[in-house]
Simulated scan of single mutants.
Amino acid sequence: MKLLLVEDDASMQAALQRALGRRGMDITVCGDGAQALARWHAAAPDVVLLDLTLPGLDGLQVLEQARKGGLTTPVLILTARGTVGDRIIGLNTGADDYLAKPFDLDELEARLRALHRRRPAAGTAAPPHDVGSLRYDRDSGAIYHGNEVLELTPRELALLQALMAKPGHAVSKERLFELVFPGESDVQYEAVEVVVYRLRKKLGATGVKLVTLRGLGYLLKAQG
């Protein structure tokens, strides 16, 4: 796993680099938000481990700019801010997971590896899939409406990728749950419906409809 570690505390940075490196991760370290964003654009890692309190751009600004720039890498926020409000802000900005300090190293590793499993294995790239005006480029993971990258949260993107990978076929709620919430046993299946609702609103202007098939799941259908 190629991990981008964005942490400005030197002692925490060194400890994580040493501990995760021993567990087989290839780690690039940044202590500055702007530098981290530049490195992320230059060579996309498999997972980003992102602290919120950073000099220059803070973690949320880094995450927001990355998502707007079409970077789809899974992100785990690691921070001393442990309130529910901070967690919601981070997840709504585009984070995939959240772990408050202090934390257990085994739990951190497990969460990082769960996020890594979302990404397609090397050598499995396939030609783009189109549904109406939407195009799914499986090499980059991005989904385009015309020539513009759709601005989606990571969970919305994971769900839409799953549907576009099987155009014209229904994907069950259980399968979508596995792809959108990997390894998250404390999340209910109904959480998929929340992601579907938000994604359906964003697809409103694209001419592509997200259809619910009772008892079967969901599929995408080009209108007209």
Rank of each mutant, 00 (worst) to 15 (best):
E109T: 10
L199V: 08
T79P: 12
Q35L: 12
K68I: 13
A66R: 01
L52W: 06
L150R: 14
L16A: 07
S172N: 02
L5T: 01
V131G: 04
E156P: 11
T212E: 08
V171G: 04
D97H: 01
N147G: 06
I89N: 03
V208C: 07
Y136V: 11
L49P: 02
A121W: 15
L99R: 06
A170P: 02
Y189K: 02
G132F: 13
F103A: 10
V84Y: 00
L105V: 12
Y98E: 01
P182T: 12
I89L: 02
A121S: 15
Q61W: 01
V211T: 08
E184N: 07
H169A: 04
V75T: 00
D106F: 15
H145V: 05
A158C: 14
G85P: 02
A222H: 05
V195W: 08
L203A: 03
K221G: 07
L49A: 00
A121L: 15
G183V: 09
L210V: 13
V149S: 11
R214L: 01
D32W: 12
E193T: 00
A114D: 03
K101M: 05
D96G: 03
F181D: 04
A191E: 08
G141P: 12
T28V: 08
A10G: 09
P167S: 09
T206W: 13
L99V: 11
A205D: 10
R22W: 09
F103C: 10
V208T: 07
G141E: 06
R81D: 04
E184G: 00
V211K: 10
R22K: 09
K101H: 08
L220A: 09
R155A: 10
V47D: 01
R39V: 09
Q13T: 07
A34Y: 00
